[in-house]
Design a protein around this nucleic acid. Structure first.
Length: 854
DNA sequence: TTATCTAGCGTTTTT
DNA sequence: CGCTAGATAA
């Protein structure tokens, strides 16, 4: 800890950042530990800050702001809503505002509360404030995520909600295991009522700031009418375990502020200036918390963009931002609308799409740029073709194409709606050897091996951590299965002790059979030993020559325990427990990676004084930045892309049902659709220079081929800003045209082995009678100005051209027999491809199939 | 108790 | 189709 904290204090964070992710990741934590107490915060404030002097000096940082930004920065007092469109310099305005607060002497660092949603954003702000203020600025103790700030506050006031200040923060996994136990205890069929669901319900309630006694009657039917009772039981269990989940961190703080006026008052006076990033993503609990804190001085500046609200499904309330002026009468609203990121075509396309949403606060992005390519749109035959084309495009752009200068792979990104769409691209890129990186996979601290290791550490710190014990009793395999665990649990409960003590009693009373008993005894002994080391007192020396290969000493045999620091202890625990060996013996391909992760975990420990310190803070830093080196194309979800930008962006899979997602629309109707549309807006606005939207006419969904309609968002793209890469034909020249383009058909690809570009312009396939028939059929139904609205009727019309029992032909699936008609889909039993539901327009009567050029 | 099989299911995700 | 969780078999 000394290392990083010290350097951080000396303002060397920037250097640290460059050293790689673990330092970077923990620098934030260490700084918060450092600033944990009020005294520390005061101390930091008392340091004579150079910014005091700066108030007399000119403020050069203001000069680089545009008028709107400047207004947002200089309006220091009273409520301010900064509506910041994509790429309008939001972070710049926010950080400059903080710098301005400090530089003018309006606030001292500890008087500013600045909250973000992600650690990444918090880190970014810290470093930018640092560079604005010069190296002189001390850490801002209250700049952090909602959760880290609240956790810090909660540790000070834990007793007010019946917790001790060293409470554990459970993650989703622990949560669900707990739920499962409770559900079983309540005698509910976990089959019909899965723990995940309960966890989801309770999370939602917490997001809405509903404590168990606050859940409205309307929700009492939830989870087989047992939801509220289980919520109550869950909270009780958490309290017994001295634990909180993520939702609690906020909810407890709201409760404390609501019930303890003195505490609230203290912080209202303490945090004289409040800044909130991504305000459109706040949920009710966060909103209440902010409102409580700001209600006295009302110096709150919320930054957000209602058009980028894409987290409604996890409790975010766009209403919070829409209501800001009502909540804070007299609020100063500043719109940042000058975009510094994208070309005019890209902005126009994005604006065109988002314009279809109702109830927006309304912003119009503009740019002083005049150059730039139109948004490109291309349809493909199927998903495979789409990924192949994207791969080729990327390679072409890498070389430099269409008069554009070569682009590095780091400048390109593929943004998909759902993570399963990534696979097609990964497969393709793997086979052509195109380097890529997937952003947003499983987080470091969510990986199984890390969580297992952490469970061991937790037990070494406290034997009372039953959840940790449950997790590792049989990991690695010790022959302690369900039955053994039940015996331990029963013994523990009967004697009213923790599971570890229960296990000890089981060993002493020999309540278990041979192998299990032996292993359990070893485990309990190990736990005792590790804890005694943690606590510092010397332990018996057993053997002198047990120095392991890697030079580390094994505690079971080694020198005096007090000699170990926590890093060595951690290694010792992992080795002695057999956990390291477990993965060393594992022959699966991911085993080496897991060992690597364990090493990294141990390395991360070096930044802390002890295991406790590590555990206390690590649960909030679920960071993922492995910052891989090297030129790679990024693949990620649209959600993960928020806040990022790339010169070239690919947006594949724009098909109705996929994007907008059918499920969103089914579950949330128009609201869901609008959120999807905002997602589209976010996607397009990620692009700086070139944005390529694509879709496929056919896609394999869960192993079944499905014909797809181009996304309705495609129709919303303003035509004059879009360049259609495939020849118009179907759907009367509307965008949907490209969807049926035979140019991309694999069948045709075989005939003409040419590059895609050439194929797109090779006319021969369009000349055949079969193609023309297909085309004219599609055209009939596509000529309307609003093709989407009519497509259903039209497809039904097309359906009526067939009779059950007909022999039919499909380009991909071949010949088959029409078994039935369901809505606008034909149910066809294909000779080779099995039974499928296919939209009628892809089907031709079998006797006409010969005309189709294949 | 563990290994193997099968049925069921299948967004988005931070902390 | 491919994964996961749960049930069944060894």
């Amino acid at each position: 800890m000394q290392c990083v904290a010290e350097q951080f204090r000396q303002g060397k964070l920037g250097t640290l950042c460059e050293q790689g992710f673990s330092c970077l990741r923990f620098a934030g934590i260490v700084s918060s530990m450092n600033d944990f107490s009020e005294e520390d915060a005061f101390e930091a404030a008392a340091v004579p800050l150079s910014q005091r002097a700066m108030s007399a000096r000119p403020m050069p940082y203001l000069d680089s702001l545009n008028p709107a930004q400047r207004e947002a920065v200089e309006t220091l007092n009273g409520p301010v809503l900064m509506l910041a469109g994509a790429g309008t310099g939001k972070t710049k305005a926010l950080t400059t505002r903080i710098a301005h607060l400090l530089a003018t002497g309006t606030a001292r660092p500890h008087e500013i509360l600045a909250v973000t949603f992600t650690n990444k954003a918090a880190r970014e702000m810290k470093s930018r404030i640092g560079s604005l203020m010069g190296e002189a600025v001390e850490g801002m103790p209250w700049l952090g995520t909602f959760h880290s700030v609240c956790a810090k506050l909660l540790r000070r006031h834990a007793e007010l909600v019946g917790l001790k200040s060293n409470f554990t923060i459970l993650d989703t996994d622990d949560q669900i295991r707990l739920m499962k136990q409770l559900i079983e205890a309540a005698g509910i069929d976990a089959k019909r009522w899965p723990p995940r669901m309960l966890s989801g319900i309770i999370d939602n309630w917490k997001n809405k700031a509903w404590t168990p006694d606050n859940v409205p009657v309307a929700d009492s039917a939830a989870f087989d009418h047992q939801g509220i009772a289980l919520y109550t039981a869950y909270q009780k269990r958490l309290r017994d375990l001295n634990a909180v989940d993520f939702g609690d961190i906020l909810l407890h703080m709201v409760t404390i502020f609501q019930k303890h006026e003195d505490v609230l008052d203290q912080y209202q006076r303490w945090f004289r200036y409040i800044l909130v990033d991504e305000y459109q993503d706040t949920n009710v609990a966060q909103y209440l918390w902010l409102r409580l804190l700001a209600s006295k001085h009302k110096n709150i500046c919320c930054v957000g963009d209602d058009d980028q609200s894409i987290y409604g499904w996890r409790g975010a309330e766009v209403g919070n931002i829409l209501r800001f002026e009502t909540d804070f009468p007299g609020a100063h609203v500043v719109r940042l609308e000058e975009n510094y990121r994208s070309t005019p075509h890209i902005l126009a396309a994005a604006s065109g799409v988002i314009a279809a949403n109702k109830g927006r606060l309304g912003k119009t992005l503009f740019t002083s740029r005049e150059d730039g390519e139109k948004v490109r749109l291309i349809g493909h035959w199927d998903g495979e073709e789409e990924s192949r084309w994207v791969g080729e495009e990327i390679e072409a752009m890498q070389r430099g194409t269409r008069g554009m200068s070569p682009l590095g792979l780091d400048s390109m990104a593929i943004l998909v709606r759902a993570s399963h769409q990534m696979r097609a691209f990964e497969d393709r890129f793997l086979s052509i050897g195109l380097p890529y990186r997937v952003i947003g996979g499983p987080r470091f601290y969510e990986r199984m091996e890390i969580r297992d290791a952490m469970a061991y550490f937790r037990l070494a710190v406290s034997h009372d951590d039953d959840l940790a014990f449950e997790r590792i009793v049989n990991t690695p395999k010790r022959g302690l299965g369900d039955k053994a665990v039940q015996t331990i649990q029963r013994t523990a409960r009967d004697n009213d002790v923790s599971l570890v003590e229960g296990a000890r009693l089981v060993c002493q009373g020999k309540l278990l059979g041979g192998k299990g008993l032996k292993e359990l005894t070893i485990l309990v002994d190990g736990l005792d030993r590790w804890r005694s080391v943690t606590r510092g007192p010397a332990m018996p020396v057993i053997d002198d020559d047990a120095v392991l290969d890697d030079g580390l000493v094994d505690a079971g045999f080694g020198t005096e325990a007090a000699d170990y620091n926590h890093v060595e202890l951690a290694e010792m625990i992992l080795d002695e427990s057999g956990y390291t060996g477990f993965w060393q013996n594992d022959k699966t391909p991911e085993a080496p990676g897991r060992l690597e992760n364990l090493k990294e975990l141990v390395k991360a420990l070096e930044n802390f004084e002890n295991l406790q310190g590590f555990l206390e803070h690590v649960s909030l830093i679920m960071d993922n930045e492995t910052e891989e080196q090297g030129e790679k194309v990024s693949i990620m979800t649209l959600h993960a892309a928020k806040g990022l930008e790339f010169p070239a962006v690919f947006l594949p899979g724009w098909e109705d049902g996929l994007f907008p997602s059918q499920r969103s629309m089914d579950e949330s109707g128009l609201k869901g659709l609008e959120e999807e549309r905002r997602l589209a807006y976010v996607g397009i606005t990620r692009a700086e220079e070139l944005c390529t939207i694509s879709f496929a006419a056919n896609r394999r969904v869960y192993g079944q081929w499905q014909s797809q309609l181009p996304s309705r968002f495609i129709d919303e793209l303003p035509e004059q800003h879009v360049e259609v890469l495939t020849p118009p034909g179907l759907y009367g020249g509307n965008y949907g045209a490209a969807g049926m383009s035979a140019s991309a058909s694999p069948a045709i690809a075989g005939a003409a082995k040419s590059t895609l570009h050439e194929k797109a312009h090779s006319a021969d396939v369009y000349d055949s009678p079969g193609w023309k028939r297909l085309q004219s059929r599609s055209q009939q139904r596509g000529t309307s100005a609003t093709p989407r609205a009519q497509s259903v009727t039209i497809d039904l019309e097309a359906v009526s051209a067939f009779t059950v029992g007909d022999r039919v032909f499909h380009q991909k699936f071949g010949y088959g027999e029409l078994m039935g008609i369901e809505g606008d889909k034909l149910v066809i039993e294909f000779d080779k491809a099995g039974s499928k539901h296919v939209v009628a327009r892809f089907i031709v009567a079998a006797d006409q199939a010969d005309d189709i050029p294949f």
